[in-house]
Each structure stands twice: as C-alpha cells, then as structure tokens.
Amino acid sequence: NLRWTSEAKTKLKNIPFFARSQAKARIEQLARQAEQDIVTPELVEQARLEFG
C-alpha cells in the first residue's frame, strides 16, 4: 500500500474534484512504476502535467 506525504495530499486537493479520483489512480500508478512506496509532490505534479 502506498503512503502519501502531507505535501502530496495537499497538491491532490488542488486538483478539481471531478478529476481527482482519476488523477489519484494515475499518481499511484506512476509511483508503482517508479517502484516507490511513498507518493511525493513531484509525482502529483507529474500527473497534473499529463492531465493538462
């Protein structure tokens, strides 16, 4: 299971509600691909840039 830093959680809250669950799934996918067990603000930002 993935842990989220408080900064990453804050960044996730800045994503519009309607896109948040999809973004969260993508962020967690990116973390797993990078073999990380902690979601960082950088991963959230990477996903945000993908979504535009």
Rank of each mutant, 00 (worst) to 15 (best):
R3S: 08
T5E: 04
Q33C: 08
E50S: 09
P41R: 06
L12P: 00
A19Q: 14
F17S: 13
Q46D: 04
E50G: 07
A8P: 00
N14L: 15
G52Q: 15
Q22Y: 12
P41F: 05
P41Q: 07
E7T: 07
K11Y: 11
Q36F: 10
R3A: 08
E45S: 05
F51L: 11
I27Y: 01
A47Q: 03
L12I: 05
E42D: 12
E50V: 08
I38Y: 09
E42I: 05
Q36K: 11
L30F: 09
E35C: 12
V44Y: 03
L43S: 02
A34L: 15
L43N: 03
L12K: 01
S21F: 08
R26H: 09
L43E: 01
I15H: 02
D37A: 10
N1C: 10
L43T: 04
A31W: 01
A19N: 11
Q22V: 11
A8T: 01
R26T: 04
T5H: 04
N14E: 15
L49H: 08
A34C: 08
Q36S: 12
S21G: 11
Q46V: 09
N14K: 14
A23W: 12
I38E: 07
F17I: 11
L12T: 02
A19C: 15
A31N: 01
A23Y: 11
R32V: 08
V44I: 06
A23T: 07
T5V: 03
V39F: 00
E42H: 05
E28R: 03
T10H: 12
I15W: 13
F18R: 09
Q22K: 14
A23N: 02
L49D: 06
R20T: 03
R20C: 06
E50D: 06
D37R: 10
K24N: 02
I27C: 10
L2Q: 02
N14P: 01
R20F: 04
K24P: 01
S6Q: 14
I27L: 02
K13C: 14
I38H: 07
T10D: 14
A34F: 13
N1S: 13
A25Y: 09
E28T: 04
T40Q: 03
D37L: 12
Q22H: 09
R48E: 09
I27A: 15
R48H: 08
L12R: 01
K9S: 08
S6Y: 12
P16M: 03
R48V: 14
T5Q: 04
L12C: 03
A23V: 15
S6K: 14
S21M: 12
Q22S: 09
R3E: 08
G52T: 14
I38D: 04
W4A: 00
F18K: 09
L2I: 11
V39T: 00
K13Y: 13
A8G: 02
L43C: 05
E35S: 13
K24H: 05
K11S: 11
T40M: 04
R48M: 15
R20M: 05
E42T: 05
T5M: 07
A25N: 09
L43M: 13
F18Q: 07
K9E: 12
T5C: 04
P41L: 11
L49E: 08
E28P: 01
D37S: 13
S21R: 14
T10A: 14
D37Q: 12
Q46K: 11
I15Y: 08
E50P: 05
F18I: 08
Q33I: 11
K11C: 09
Q36W: 08
N1A: 13
E35P: 05
I38K: 05
S6V: 10
D37I: 11
E50Y: 10
Q36C: 09
E7R: 09
L49C: 07
Q29E: 12
L43V: 04
I38F: 09
A31Q: 01
Q36R: 11
A8L: 01
S21W: 10
V44P: 00
E45M: 09
E7W: 04
T5G: 03
L49S: 08
E35Y: 12
R3D: 04
E50H: 08
L2P: 06
T5F: 02
A23R: 03
L12E: 01
A8M: 01
A8S: 04
A25F: 10
W4F: 01
A25T: 09
R26E: 04
R20H: 04
T5K: 03
A31K: 00
K13Q: 12
R48C: 10
E35N: 15
T40K: 03
T40F: 04
G52E: 15
L30A: 04
A8K: 01
W4R: 00
L2Y: 04
E50M: 13
Q46S: 07
Q33A: 11
T10E: 15
A31P: 00
P16Q: 03
R48T: 11
R48I: 15
I15Q: 02
T5L: 05
Q33L: 13
I15P: 03
L2G: 02
L2A: 03
F18D: 05
A23C: 09
E45T: 05
A23P: 00
L49Q: 10
E28S: 03
K13L: 14
R32M: 09
F18M: 09
T10K: 15
V44F: 07
L30G: 01
G52F: 15
K9F: 12
R32D: 03
F51D: 04
F17Q: 11
D37P: 08
A8V: 01
P16G: 03
E42V: 05
S6W: 11
K9W: 15
A19Y: 15
V44E: 00
R26L: 10
D37G: 08
D37M: 12
K24A: 07
T40S: 05
L30E: 02
L49F: 09
A47E: 05
Q29T: 08
I27G: 02
A19R: 13
N1D: 10
A23L: 15
F18H: 13
R3N: 05
Q22T: 11
A23F: 13
K11W: 10
N1K: 14
W4E: 00
E42P: 03
Q36V: 14
E35F: 14
A25M: 11
T40I: 03
K11M: 15
I38T: 10
A25Q: 11
T10P: 00
N1T: 13
A31L: 03
K9C: 14
K13G: 11
R26N: 04
F51Q: 06
Q22G: 08
S21Q: 12
V39L: 01
W4T: 00
F17P: 12
A47I: 12
A47C: 07
Q29N: 07
E35L: 13
P41H: 07
E42M: 06
A8Y: 01
E45N: 06
F18T: 06
D37Y: 14
E7H: 05
I15K: 02
N14H: 10
R20S: 02
A8N: 00
T40Y: 06
F17W: 14
R20K: 03
N1L: 12
R48P: 02
L30Y: 09
K9T: 11
Q46I: 12
E28D: 03
V39P: 01
S21L: 12
L12F: 15
E35R: 14
R32E: 04
E7S: 08
I27R: 01
T5W: 01
A31S: 03
V39I: 13
N1M: 13
A34V: 07
Q36A: 10
K24V: 13
A31V: 05
E35I: 06
A23K: 02
W4Y: 02
L43H: 06
L30P: 00
L2M: 10
Q46N: 04
L43W: 04
V39Y: 00
Q36M: 15
A34H: 11
Q33V: 08
A25G: 05
